[in-house]
Simulated scan of single mutants.
Amino acid sequence: MKEVIAVVRINMMNQTKQALSDAGVDAYFAREAQGRGKGFANPKVLEGVDNGYEEAAAVLGEKGKLYPKRVLTVVVEDDKVDDVVQAIIAPNKTGKPGDGKIFILPVADSVRVRTGESGEAAIV
């Protein structure tokens, strides 16, 4: 089993949910988050802010702010990971900074609380 964690634009959630549903994935978690990528600010300006220079903070302005995002967490069988990743990429890829990130992690086990099923039986 794998856990697929995706950070996407908040305004792309409906399209992302539809793409996941079309890929046969209806079970996932979604939560609100705020964040930013590394490419939005000049590192020298950030260094100035860290050193307490007010001018650097003024130059940084809006570029240092956190942006609203959605974080999706999907746990699927190993053979469905590529389908999930492609389903997330399709509606979110604009070619511009901020399109998001996808992380894939191994899952050791899972247990369905209601029935006590474990392993892949708990996620299908």
Rank of each mutant, 00 (worst) to 15 (best):
Val84Leu: 05
Asn51Lys: 14
Lys38Ser: 11
Tyr67Glu: 12
Phe29Ile: 08
Ala87Gln: 01
Gly98Trp: 07
Ile5Asp: 01
Ala41Asp: 10
Ile89Cys: 03
Lys63Val: 03
Ala57Pro: 00
Ala56Leu: 04
Ala87His: 04
Phe29Leu: 14
Lys65Glu: 13
Gln86Asn: 14
Val84Pro: 00
Tyr28Phe: 15
Val75His: 02
Val45Ala: 00
Glu55Cys: 14
Leu66Lys: 08
Arg114Ser: 14
Phe40Ala: 12
Ser110Asp: 03
Asn42Val: 07
Thr16Asp: 03
Val76Leu: 03
Lys38Ile: 15
Ala87Asn: 03
Glu77Cys: 06
Arg36Tyr: 00
Val49Asn: 08
Arg114Glu: 12
Thr94Asn: 02
Lys44Met: 11
Tyr28His: 07
Val111Glu: 06
Asp78Phe: 10
Gly64Gln: 08
Ala27Cys: 00
Lys93Met: 12
Val71Thr: 06
Asn92Ser: 09
Val107Asp: 01
Arg36Asp: 04
Pro68Ala: 08
Leu72Gln: 03
Gly48Asp: 09
Tyr67Asn: 08
Gly98Asn: 04
Asp109Tyr: 13
Leu46Val: 12
Val107His: 09
Gly64Lys: 11
Gly48Glu: 09
Val45Asn: 09
Leu46Arg: 10
Ala108His: 13
Gln15Thr: 03
Val59Phe: 12
Arg114His: 09
Asp99Ser: 00
Tyr28Asp: 02
Arg114Pro: 01
Gly61Tyr: 11
Val7Tyr: 13
Val75Lys: 04
Gln86Ile: 04
Gln18Phe: 03
Asp78Arg: 10
Leu60Ser: 11
Ala33Arg: 06
Leu60Gly: 11
Asp109Pro: 09
Glu55Gln: 15
Asp79Ser: 13
Ala23Ser: 12
Ile5Leu: 14
Arg112Trp: 06
Ala58Cys: 10
Glu55Leu: 13
Leu46Ile: 11
Gly52His: 01
Pro43Ser: 08
Ala58Asn: 15
Met12Gly: 08
Ala108Val: 15
Ile104Cys: 03
Lys93Tyr: 12
Val113Lys: 08
Phe40Thr: 12
Ile102His: 06
Ala19Met: 03
Val111His: 05
Ile102Asp: 00
Phe40Ser: 13
Val85Ile: 11
Asp78Ala: 12
Asp79Trp: 11
Ala6Thr: 01
Gly48Leu: 09
Ile5Arg: 15
Ala33His: 05
Val111Cys: 09
Ala33Asn: 02
Thr94Cys: 06
Leu72Met: 07
Leu20Ile: 03
Lys38Trp: 02
Val49Phe: 10
Glu54Tyr: 06
Tyr53His: 15
Val59Asp: 10
Val59Asn: 02
Gly100Thr: 00
Tyr67Ser: 06
Arg114Val: 10
Leu20His: 08
Gly98Tyr: 10
Gln18Lys: 15
Met13Ala: 07
Asp83Ser: 15
Val49Ile: 11
Asn42Glu: 15
Asn51Ser: 12
Glu47Asp: 14
Pro68Leu: 04
Thr16Gly: 04
Ala23Glu: 08
Ala90Cys: 05
Thr73Tyr: 01
Val84Lys: 04
Gly95Ile: 05
Asp83Tyr: 03
Leu72Trp: 01
Leu72Gly: 02
Lys69Trp: 03
Asn42Ser: 13
Ala33Met: 08
Ala57Glu: 13
Tyr67Val: 04
Ala19Gly: 01
Val84Asp: 02
